[in-house]
Design a protein around this nucleic acid. Structure first.
Length: 292
DNA sequence: AGCAGCCTGTCA
DNA sequence: TGACAGGCTGCT
């Protein structure tokens, strides 16, 4: 489940290994995961140079010479692996051979669940087409007032709001829960009910948690590894994610799990106060009485 | 706004 | 062996 910190870690590695290299061979094993251009258009990528590796939200961009962009979304189980030439494994979807100053290497895009997608786009105007169309500002680029405005304009609960890539791009289930916990906000709080102080703290903690997770190489909860096969270590510092029944690290409370918008949501009911007039997380009632 | 569907590996 | 995991699209 690569989210912003994992994708950032991946990008930094790809940058080191791929930037400046020439694409000498391509093998698309599963044409159905390619979007934005027909399969035959992939041939036009041969011989182009990988000029710039970048990230926006959870998307990885390879900027190619000649105005092309190769974009990857890893979704849940996708992996980008770089290394010496080797046989593709059975879950390989795209194999790119890159010639560089230090000899050839290969980029493998593998995804056992096949949720992952690849786009081939013209770099001019790419921001106005899928998958960038409707994508909100990156979680590490959004300004404090912009985030406050985006959350405050909505009556939706904060958990689904933070997961909505149109609001802010890069957060997934792990970091949404960790950020809400660190800020002491109940996941069912509605966006419009955020106080200015809480919105500011949320922005600060979002940056803090994401930056710290990047320093740890991301979270390896189940099978995430970076392009060199190394696991991250931020999972060791998760305060709530997948810690149901365990003590909250910040207060004497116990971590609970509820389902919000179909997603498992972990929080501490003691230090993440219930929203003023909302559901408590157990069952509706009690607190809602008397609220306008 | 909420949920099925896409997928398959993993765990109870 | 069946439920579950979850990012995102598209449907209701």
């Amino acid at each position: 489940m690569p989210e912003l910190p994992e994708v950032e870690t991946i990008c930094r590695q790809l940058k080191r290994h791929l930037e400046g290299g020439l694409i000498t061979r391509l093998r698309l094993a599963r044409p159905d995961i390619l979007r934005g251009a027909p399969e035959r258009a992939l041939a036009s990528v041969l011989g182009r140079r990988i000029e710039k590796v970048s990230r926006r939200g959870k998307l990885v961009r390879l900027g190619l010479s000649g105005g092309r962009l190769l974009v990857f979304h890893l979704k849940m189980t996708g992996r980008l692996v770089v290394g010496p030439e080797r046989r593709p494994d059975k879950h390989n979807h795209l194999l790119v051979t890159v010639g560089g100053a230090g000899g050839a290497c290969q980029l493998h895009f593998d995804d056992p669940r096949r949720f992952g997608r690849i786009w081939l786009l013209p770099s001019a105007g790419a921001e106005e087409m899928p998958p960038f169309l409707n994508l909100g500002p990156d979680a590490l680029a959004v300004t404090r007032p912009d985030l406050a405005a985006r959350l405050g304009a909505s009556s939706r609960r904060l958990k689904p709001l933070l997961l909505d890539q149109k609001i802010v791009a890069g957060l997934g289930n792990i970091y949404a829960d960790e950020i809400l916990h660190r800020t002491g906000i109940h996941p069912l709080t509605r966006g419009r009910d955020l106080t200015a102080a809480k919105a500011a703290a949320l922005w600060r903690n979002m940056r803090l948690v994401l930056r710290h997770a990047i320093r740890r190489g991301g979270s390896s909860v189940r099978d995430y590894v970076d392009p060199s096969g190394r696991r991250g270590s931020f999972q060791l510092e998760h305060a709530v994610y997948r810690r149901e029944g365990l003590p909250c690290p910040r207060c004497p409370g116990t971590v609970r799990r509820i389902v919000v918008g179909g997603r498992g949501t972990y929080f501490c009911p003691r230090c993440q106060r219930p929203p003023p007039c909302g559901v408590t997380g157990r069952r509706a009632g009690g607190l809602t009485k008397g609220c306008p």
